[in-house]
Amino acid sequence: MTDPLLTELLDLAVEAARRAGALLRDGRPDDLAVAQTKTSPIDVVTEMDIAAEKLITGFLADHRPQDGLLGEEGASSPGTSGVRWVIDPLDGTVNYLYGLPTWAVSIAAERDGETVVGVVEAPMRGETYRAVLGGGAYADGRARADERRLAVRPSPPLDQALLGTGFGYIQARRAHQADVAQRVIPRVRDIRRGGSAAIDLCDVAAGRLDAYYERGLNPWDLAAGALIAREAGALTGGRPGEPESGELALAASPGLFEPLQEILEDLGAWHD
């Protein structure tokens, strides 16, 4: 990677994500409670989501005060530099609330509207996933020597594919998503529901899933993980001919992408 700006953005994203991950891992109170709800009573925010976002946005503002921000817990500013940070301070909040390990910090940087850097910190796995546009995707373990380049699994036949998915928190949407999953599962090896879109996308990149799809995601859920998946060789998108979005997000090894996209389109996975 020779672009000094991208090097700077990556280094800042890694450091911010690791600081927030350490805060969330080490600072979780035993009596953690819901601070507020979002789209429904089961779509929750904890005090730690808010604290992690404040840490990240403060760190980034100290180093690059002219950049824009888009954060899940309310941070939003347009900026003047052409760079915008897209931040999910705690992806997998319900897992975190219940003490389950599948949660992550997700930070992406956009330059002129294009995602150029993505970092997903998974503290309970001891892994940091990262990618720079055109530079490949990598995962670091506890020590830098553990770094490895990520690559999707070779595409299996559809009936041998392991898929990840997720479910929203609006009742009607959840019911439809369950119906879609019920009709997808006989066609594939199995389906997993991890509870963190960022980690699911990184699992596609790392070859731990063959594909992942979900309806109803937000930019902060997708930005970093989708770049990491693409840089590891996955194809990403939404409905045929469209990019991944809140309507539908799909990431898959290349040989599975179009067959799964066709199935999801036929099943109406993109509506509620």
Rank of each mutant, 00 (worst) to 15 (best):
T2K: 06
L5G: 01
L10F: 05
L12C: 13
L12D: 11
A17W: 08
A20W: 03
L23F: 13
L23R: 13
R28T: 02
D30I: 09
V34M: 09
P41S: 13
V45R: 03
E47S: 14
D49P: 03
A51K: 06
A51V: 07
E53N: 10
I56H: 04
L60K: 06
D62Y: 08
R64Y: 04
P65N: 09
D67Y: 02
G68Q: 10
L69G: 10
E72P: 03
G74E: 05
A75N: 12
P78W: 01
W85C: 03
L90N: 01
D91V: 02
G92S: 06
N95G: 02
T102R: 14
S106C: 07
S106F: 05
A108D: 01
E110A: 00
V116Y: 01
V120Q: 02
V120W: 03
V120A: 03
G126A: 06
G126F: 08
T128Q: 09
G134W: 06
G134Y: 05
G136W: 01
Y138T: 05
R142T: 15
R142Y: 14
A145P: 12
A145L: 13
D146Y: 09
P156K: 01
L158S: 03
Q160G: 11
A161G: 00
G164E: 03
T165I: 08
G166Q: 13
F167D: 03
G168W: 01
I170M: 13
R173G: 13
A175E: 15
V180W: 04
Q182N: 10
Q182H: 10
R183C: 11
R187V: 04
D190N: 06
I191Y: 02
R193V: 14
S196W: 02
A197S: 05
A198D: 07
A198I: 03
A198S: 08
D200E: 09
D200V: 04
D203T: 04
L209C: 10
R215S: 12
W220I: 08
D221C: 10
L222N: 00
A223F: 12
A224G: 09
L227G: 02
G237N: 11
G241M: 02
P243E: 05
L248Y: 03
A251N: 11
A252H: 10
S253Q: 01
E258K: 13
E265P: 03
